[in-house]
């Protein structure tokens, strides 16, 4: 075997394995994205189950649709908008951060900050007295 041919095979080998790795890693991240998205979606035909965990027809169809859109290069936000336009916000287990859910999202953090501010003020006040 001459050197040129050897090189050619080597390059070909590297190329194939490289493309294989890229293929695997890209499908890997696609799968991760799919899991990440479906873990926060409600299976509409089940009881309080996520689409990720469910094996129902509905969930499988949504999984396929999301996979298709991911392959098209759609972003997570676009996919979530697509689904919530059709099925309503009910399908999202993570409530959107918008005007109507503002109270829901801010309540715990505002309350805990306020409580700690009051606590701090009282402690320092008491300290000054003693």
């Amino acid at each position: 075997m001459n050197k040129k041919l050897k090189n050619y095979y080597l390059i070909k080998k590297i190329f194939i394995s490289a493309s294989f790795i890229i293929l695997i890693s890209s499908s890997h991240t696609l799968e991760n994205n799919l899991a990440e998205i479906t873990k926060e979606l409600r299976c509409m035909t089940c009881q309080n189950q996520t689409i990720y965990e469910s094996e129902s027809d509905f969930s499988n169809q949504i999984k396929n649709e999301i996979m298709r859109q991911l392959k098209e290069g759609k972003s997570k936000k676009q996919i979530i908008d697509f689904l919530s336009y059709r099925y309503g916000e009910y399908i999202l287990f993570r409530p959107q951060f918008d005007k109507k859910n503002l109270f829901l999202w801010l309540f715990p953090f505002v309350l805990i900050s306020a409580a700690f501010v009051i606590l701090f003020v009282r402690i320092t006040k008491n300290r000054r007295h003693t």
Partner: peptide, 20 residues
């Protein structure tokens, strides 16, 4: 109020309750 249904699920509780 709005005649719209939303879900409040695990992602909400995990991201509020745990840090608190």
């Amino acid at each position: 109020i709005f005649n719209e249904r939303i879900s409040v699920g695990a992602p909400y509780f995990n991201s509020t309750v745990l840090p608190i």
